[in-house]
Design a protein around this nucleic acid. Structure first.
Lengths: 98, 98
DNA sequence: CTATCGTTTAGACGTTCATCTAAATGAAAC
DNA sequence: GTTTCATTTAGATGAACGTCTAAACGATAG
């Protein structure tokens, strides 16, 4: 299931920090790595997981590879959460759908 | 960090299915276990993780222990997601909040 | 074409995770 | 109190994870 990968990707603090960085603006793999004390190989591994989860996409630009947030997947997960709140809300409150 | 535990808890399909079941109504550990083909011990383990993540709470009632969704944590995570959408949306679009 | 720079892949290592079986706890009923 | 039923805890096992070093790949610059 897609959600499994997404939540697994989000469960790591390093990866969430990467997403925070990319929230400001797209960054190359090297720029992202500069924010952490780990190996470039490790950062690349995290980026691959984020990409696999659909949370980011990459754009090759000459010598560099830029990573960027993929907001549509954020919206998907947001919807998943809202089903719980809606579902629960409807059960003890008169429902008016939007 | 709290988010780490929450996302780790949500990354397992079994635990997400448990949350779905609890979305309908609170259930005892036994009732939850009846929906799966695993050992009761394993289900208990998953419930402990969900409880630790704050996604559910338990209520002791005689011989049984009932589990129930804790919606406030759902809302917290939902807010975390919305910061990304808001942040990004504001940067390239004139923001008008709903 | 060869050297260089940015990034990824391969393989290894210790840790964490999901699951099991077996034993322990806790509450109710006899 | 002893038995019974619901649930959890303890300990074990194999798979997955985060990290590293070393090697490979890809694109640009000499």
């Amino acid at each position: 299931m897609a959600l499994a990968n997404t939540f697994k990707a989000l469960s790591d603090p390093t990866r969430r920090e990467i997403l925070n960085l990319l929230g400001v603006r797209p960054l190359s793999a090297g720029e992202i790595g500069a924010h952490f004390s780990m190996t470039g190989a490790t950062v690349s591994h995290h980026l691959a997981i984020l990409k696999d989860a659909g949370l980011v996409f990459d754009r090759h630009e000459g010598k560099y590879i830029f990573y960027e947030l993929n907001l549509s997947v954020f919206e998907e997960v947001l919807n998943w959460f809202q089903t719980f709140l809606d579902q629960k809300g409807d059960s003890h409150e008169e429902a008016e759908k939007k």
